[in-house]
Design a protein around this nucleic acid. Structure first.
Lengths: 251, 251
DNA sequence: CGGCGGCTTGAGAAAGATCAAACGCTGTGG
DNA sequence: CCACAGCGTTTGATCTTTCTCAAGCCGCCG
């Protein structure tokens, strides 16, 4: 359990990266692809529950998720936990630690995970020689900031029901973008405990709130996962005005 | 009221930027300085209450605060408002809009403001020719992300009293870093309405909570401002474990 | 002088937390 | 194969925090 398996050999070449063909991601030039291929040193497989990065680490790695779900969180000294965001395929993990020297949040695998490991100390080279990729890194940081803005608005100003609807709609949209939704049905691999720590609510109240969404026919809950039944209605309950997502970069 | 005055001429040359001498900011090389000087097109003066950037804008400007305070916020369709963060001298405004094409939050002046205006469309040039500055931009985005992480933890998991203490301690530390604290006393230019919208509380409850901090002798409230009396105690009440701030960049 | 924005206070209502207990599934060990 | 432990989910009862409503105060500015 909670083990990390490291592969020195590249299993998936960046040229044939399965993410690259998704319409959600921008296209790369060959020189960019070549650099990213050399930037990637290995792949890593992690089990659910593995803590990939821990608060306070100084030499955190830099990863991109190739497949699976993870989440980012912080805790107070007495153990209260706040989930900050979820990471899906194409998301960069550990940028804060790489750019600012120290990490102040933790990252845990939610499902089995495959990660691309990058050479943290060559980020400088990326900035010097591949300005377009450097811009992408900044884009990704801005994108994370935007998601946090939304979460903060949600936790600060939405009611429990609205918050729950927003979170599930948000995760659905993200899953959709990376092709994890088949025939309109997505299975979001979250527990109610995690939802509670994301929404800033207690587990009990989270359960009662989710139950209301179930009764309304918007979601279904089964086996540590949430199935979305009516995304439109969820967005509506949340009062969420989303900007349409354009093509995004990833490294 | 709420007017913007634009000066075509540079009043303060970047070489003699008053922020540059603060120990809080990293030193720049001459070529960097020269570029930033050319990147800056003008200065702008704004009155308190001026909305510098509004949600949904497509051609948002890119600014750095030279002096004064501003805040960033989002609103729900029915008007509920959440303050996301505060911006002080040295902070970049409008990066999200510049990098991602569209802005999804608003920015308002809290005090009289002096801003440096940058040529948004030359950001590309910055990335191509000044990788060290590009890295700084990414650093700033990561820094914003880190502050948001903290705010989210606060709003999601701290009690009203802890939240209030955290916010005031946070603002004090930020003011301190840019030299706005004289003999241990800082005057934070916030209203209780704004505090409420930052903490995700009602005005009434915010008032009662702040009153408790006043009674405890940690702060004083007078004339649309908060005076910090005991920063250590505030940090303690908040249960805030802060990483020591290192030197930071700015553009 | 009057209006307005910001602060303050009390009282009752509502949302959400805590406590307590139980159910069902899964994996493990006898 | 069954007993059991552990985790995730569910539900009811009660307690606490926070919200809403209502009103009054103060200082500033037109």
């Amino acid at each position: 359990m909670n083990q990390i398996f490291r592969n020195t050999a590249l299993r998936v070449s960046c040229d044939q990266c399965p993410l690259r063909v998704l319409p959600h991601f921008r296209e790369f030039s060959q020189p960019e692809l070549d650099f990213v291929s050399s930037f990637k040193t290995a792949e890593l497989v992690a089990e659910p529950g593995t803590v990939l990065l821990a608060e306070g680490m100084h030499n955190a790695h830099l990863y991109t998720i190739l497949s699976g779900w993870a989440f980012r969180y912080k805790t107070l000294p007495d153990g209260r936990r706040q989930v900050l965001n979820y990471m899906l395929p194409g998301d960069l993990i550990g940028l804060q630690g790489t750019v600012m020297g120290e990490l102040d949040h933790s990252v845990e695998a939610l499902t089995p995970l495959i990660l691309c490991i990058f050479q943290r100390d060559r980020l400088n080279e990326l900035f010097v020689n591949y300005p377009s990729l450097a811009f992408d890194v900044t884009w990704l940081a801005s994108h994370e900031e935007r998601m946090l803005d939304d979460h903060l608005l949600s936790v600060g100003r939405r009611s429990a029901l609205e918050r729950a609807a927003y979170l599930i709609a948000f995760l659905y949209k993200r899953a959709l973008a990376v092709g994890l939704v088949s025939d309109g049905r997505a299975r979001l691999p979250i527990t109610q405990n995690l939802v509670a720590d994301t929404l800033g609510l207690s587990i009990v109240h989270t359960n009662k709130t989710l139950r209301r969404l179930v009764t309304l026919g918007l979601i279904r809950w089964q086996g540590r996962a949430c199935e979305v039944l009516d995304i439109e209605a969820l967005v509506d309950v949340a009062g969420w005005e989303q900007a349409p997502e354009k093509k995004r970069p990833f490294i």
